[in-house]
Design a protein around this nucleic acid. Sequence first.
RNA 1: GACCCCAUCGUCUAGCCCGGUUAGGACACAAGAUUUUCAUUCUUGUAGCGCGGGUUCAAAUCCCGCUGGGGUCGCCA
Length: 423
Amino acid sequence: MVKVRFAPSPTGFLHIGGARTALFNLMYAKAQKGIFVLRVEDTDLQRSKKEYVDEILDSMKWLGLDWDELYYQSERFDIYREYAQKLLEEGKAYKDGEAIILKMLPQQVKIFDLIRGEIQFDTETIKDQVLMKSDGSPTYSFACVVDDAAMEISCVIRGEDHISNTPKQIMIYQALGLKPPKYAHLPLIMGEDGTRLSKRNGAVAVSDYRQQGFLPEALINYLMLLGWSPGNNKEIVSFSTAVKNFSIKKVNKAAAIFSMNKLKWINGQYIKQADEETLIDLLIPFLRAKGYIKENFDRNYLKNVVHLFKGRLSTLLDFLEWTDYIFKDQIDIDAELKEKYLSEDRKGSLKELGQKFKKVDVFNAVNIETAFKEVVAFLNLQSSDLVHPLRVAVTGRAVGPGLFEAIEVLGKQKTLERLEKNF
RNA sequence: GACCCCAUCGUCUAGCCCGGUUAGGACACAAGAUUUUCAUUCUUGUAGCGCGGGUUCAAAUCCCGCUGGGGUCGCCA
């Protein structure tokens, strides 16, 4: 039976690298109809926090990284103590104060890594390992070994930063008389500048990406591409498709640099693919937080707005950026734009447009454009002479979606108000 | 420093295991087309096997060395 685990420590938020490790564990499990265990490694009584546990579980759920079993190491101290006691009695470990320490026997330890092949260590270079700390809590390696064995984990898939822990843990298995699992050490994810991923060079917490308006499916899609390729030159690939093609042996050995650009591109692709109703649900929390919508809002109207902008978003946050003139009563027009597009003679033309628009009964894009064209012809102008001033006058921006569609969505009332009052 | 891991376009990668490819794709970048603007979309382009030795008729691919990058050396996980 294939069984893997993701074992985060609740001393911080779920890290993007942790999420990738969890994802590869899940893909490996799903590809073989195995079990995915989530084990919270909260043995550090000082640094572990309940709020971090909640945040990690929440982020995992948001990403769709659903686990089959959940364990907390803090509830298993008796088990670790028992095993440590046994090693003490067998003379394989010794006491130093209250701490229990494993004697390192001299030998060559070979580990076979599914991704890297054979790796060899000489235990001469490894110190005796603390199993139980003076305060009665187990160390990472000891709890890890006892649990991986007890939970019958068939393969340990973790970050490359754990390679040097592996021989230490093999020695613990050996002392305990237990058979080690298989191992697969994933390449690390580095920041844009090639150094360790940190808050300095981009967001590290999964929850940050959520707040920045990334879709969970898009983040998953991006993460699976870091160190692995779904094949067939495909980049936009769903989790289930990835699972069908997943092979741990095809995982890359070299560290990968995180690219915000590519993540944004993928996110934009997912937004374009999503239907309006789905996007509305995703957007609601953002719109509420921004104060753009109240408890009660017109969902149909919102649908029109979403339809207008969905093709130009790379994150959900971009939507707020684009739609300020739709949701706000007042708009501010940048002085530079005023000077460039709203000169005195243009103002007269815009007044003229306002008069014409007032008479348009069915205020839709087609009728607005017709009215616009009539005014342009009447004033002996080119369309382009008035398109930009009109856009600036009603949206406060020089760029945006199709002007007439935008005006339709903006609505007759706000359009007329702005043509009369804004300059 | 010691031990360990790694090395294909700027970035993510396919190819490497089982030597023979015009070294493929994607992001980014550039140009063009479309668009009333911007974005989208489409087309095209720039760009890569770190270096040096082997082995071989033939090396991105196999071997060795170097260089470079990374990780670990806690009673943290």
